[in-house]
Design a protein around this nucleic acid. Structure first.
Lengths: 254, 254
DNA sequence: GTAAACTCTTTACAGCGTACGGAAACTCAT
DNA sequence: ATGAGTTTCCGTACGCTGTAAAGAGTTTAC
């Protein structure tokens, strides 16, 4: 994968000095291809995304796509940056905490709509325009709260890491069950007897206690309908808030 | 994928009432296969793990593996539970905070040794013995700090999510660069000119300001050699601590 | 009109997971 | 000892993947 070409594609810059003047016009656009690929990945997952599957609904052969996109990896890069454009603006947020809340929830919403996104975000080496705008937005929200640049970066990393982990966790819970083609009830019917034989109260006392409290029961795991995302987010923001307060106390009046 | 069989394999229970007495003995063990697969995944990544590649160093054909393991997915399940056995014990930790610190760092260590792990953890639907023990340990560390079962689960989810996200982020940074077969310097040499043309100070002022501070420079991103993991972990624990303190204040003396 | 340039297609290859059927090995009943 | 039963292991094959290579077809420049 040539990074320069991948980057140029992300920003939709033609690398060649002059556009081709000879030869037939292209019948497709990168955007059409990317959007088709996104809809396939949304429906069937990133693993089921193949060049042939993208080409078919566009009415071309798989190899035609290679005139628009260097390869599958670069296509996925473009897909990622495209959906990151759905992130909400933080411009008019009321303070850093509200901005980070909106940022995190926006990330979670994207993950819900596009379950294939969380494993991909934040490679950071190949940022497209939308990912760049996201970084600019969240760093702007953190500007002027008294953290230096290094600490701002750490904070964004923290929130990114949490959102990413939480999103994947909620997505994974369903994954196995769907692959088996079962309902949750059927799943527990099949695994329950074996599980209860293995997870004994003597060997795993603390887990058993929590299990018996019934909070594991529902798919949402009894953490609320969001799988505990909001709870964890508030704890993360609490931790950041304390740090900001401490920093403010260290350097009193400017 | 049959969940009952997958679970039985994870716990190494022979499902059939009696072991086969007739026929040749098996020349391999599930553990040998799992360990071979782990070493391949460690070296080349999970994507490069194929049944044929696992079979070859064991001196058998790919299809022989199917007498031990129902398929690739179940093998990966076993690999995951196996490496989760490397997690440190939390038994003699000094308080919940020290225990969670050790838990989080242990998870990060596993992720460093086995970069393919983070995307897999916490499907929760198919827990093996080691993953179960991890849950028991961390829930035990949180028992008696004044949180109810639901909130304990949220806290574990929070830490899990953070560790997972942070681990993947640090692993991803290198991913693209390695795939391109370049050094970091070569990478920036190739992408730098284009990047600087796109990421202008007018369009992305806040990002540019942080960029110019130089904290993006190193692979570790200037967040310390751990990529900001410790910083974020302390913020997460701060947030949890505040919550625990507030809970304690709500229900004063028991 | 012809040659160059470009798009799109066809074919092909190496690799994947694994279904299927057969060969070899081993145990047991006789 | 021998035949039957059972299991392990292997060879082959199928449909899938990304994409290299080469050819066919279309448009423009000269």
């Amino acid at each position: 994968m040539d990074p320069a070409r991948a980057l140029a594609l992300l920003w939709r810059i033609e690398q060649e000095p002059t556009r081709p003047s000879r030869g037939p016009r292209q019948g497709l656009t990168v955007d059409r291809i990317v959007r088709t690929a996104i809809s396939i990945a949304d429906a069937e997952g990133l693993g089921a995304l193949s060049m042939r599957k993208v080409a078919e609904p566009l009415g071309v052969s798989a190899m035609s796509l290679y005139t628009y996109v260097p390869g599958r990896a670069e296509l996925v890069n473009c897909m990622l940056d495209d959906v990151l454009g759905e992130a909400p603006s933080l411009r008019d947020a009321d303070g850093w905490r509200a901005a980070l809340e909106r940022y995190a929830r926006g990330g979670m919403d994207i993950a819900r709509r596009h379950p294939w996104v969380p494993p991909l975000v934040s490679s950071r080496m190949l940022m497209g325009p939308n990912e760049t705008a996201m970084w600019d937005g969240v760093l702007g929200a953190l500007a002027g709260v008294g953290l230096d640049e290094r600490e701002m970066l750490c904070v964004v990393h923290l929130v990114n890491g949490y959102v990413r982990g939480a999103a994947q966790q909620s997505a994974d819970a369903d994954h196995d069950v769907r692959r088996a083609g079962l309902s949750y009830d059927e799943w527990y019917e099949k695994t329950g007897p074996l599980l209860e034989r293995m997870i004994s109260a003597e060997r795993f006392p603390d887990l058993t206690k929590v299990w018996r409290a019934g909070v594991f029961e529902e798919p949402g795991e009894g953490l609320g309908s969001d799988g505990g995302f909001e709870y964890g987010l508030q704890r993360v923001l609490d931790g950041i808030e304390e740090r900001i307060a401490r920093r403010a106390a260290e350097r009193p009046a400017p």
